[in-house]
Simulated assay, not measured.
Amino acid sequence: MSEADSEVNAAQGAQDGTEEAPSRGLLLAAVGLVWMAGMLWSARATITGRPSAEMEVTSTAYAMPGAISASLVTGAAVALAVLAFLTRGGRTPGVTVRFIIATGTGLAIGLLGALSIITINTEGWLYAVVGGTVAAAATIGGALAGFRYRRVTAAVCWGAITVFVVGFVLNVLQDMLLPVLGSGDSAASRTNAAGWFGLVQAVLSGVAGALVAYRVLRRARRGPAGPDLRWPLYALAGAGPGLLLVIGEGLTRTAGSRVLELAGKVSELELTVQQMLSGSRLNNGLIVLFVGAFTAIIAVGRTLGPATPALEPTIEAPVATPRPAADPDEIERAARDEPQTVPAQHDD
Rank of each mutant, 00 (worst) to 15 (best):
V203M: 03
V203F: 01
L204D: 04
S205A: 15
G206L: 02
V207I: 15
A208L: 03
A208I: 03
G209Q: 04
A210R: 04
L211A: 15
V212T: 08
V212Q: 00
Y214W: 10
R215Q: 14
R218Y: 00
R219E: 13
R221E: 15
R222T: 15
G223S: 14
G226Y: 07
P227N: 07
R230W: 02
W231V: 11
W231N: 09
P232C: 06
L233Y: 11
A235Q: 07
A235L: 11
A237L: 04
A237P: 08
G238W: 06
A239H: 05
A239F: 05
L243E: 00
L245Q: 09
I247E: 06
I247Q: 07
I247D: 04
G248L: 03
G248H: 04
G250C: 04
L251M: 11
T252R: 12
A255H: 07
A255N: 03
G256Y: 09
S257V: 14
R258N: 02
R258E: 09
R258Q: 10
V259I: 14
V259T: 12
L260C: 01
A263I: 01
K265Q: 15
K265S: 14
V266F: 01
V266H: 04
S267L: 02
S267A: 09
E268P: 10
E270T: 13
E270I: 02
L271V: 00
T272G: 15
Q275S: 14
Q275L: 14
M276W: 06
L277Y: 04
G279I: 03
S280R: 08
R281L: 13
L282N: 01
L282M: 14
N283H: 08
N284K: 12
L286M: 13
L286S: 08
L286N: 08
I287M: 11
F290E: 04
F290A: 14
V291F: 01
G292T: 00
G292A: 00
F294Y: 08
F294H: 03
T295M: 10
T295Q: 10
A296F: 10
A296C: 09
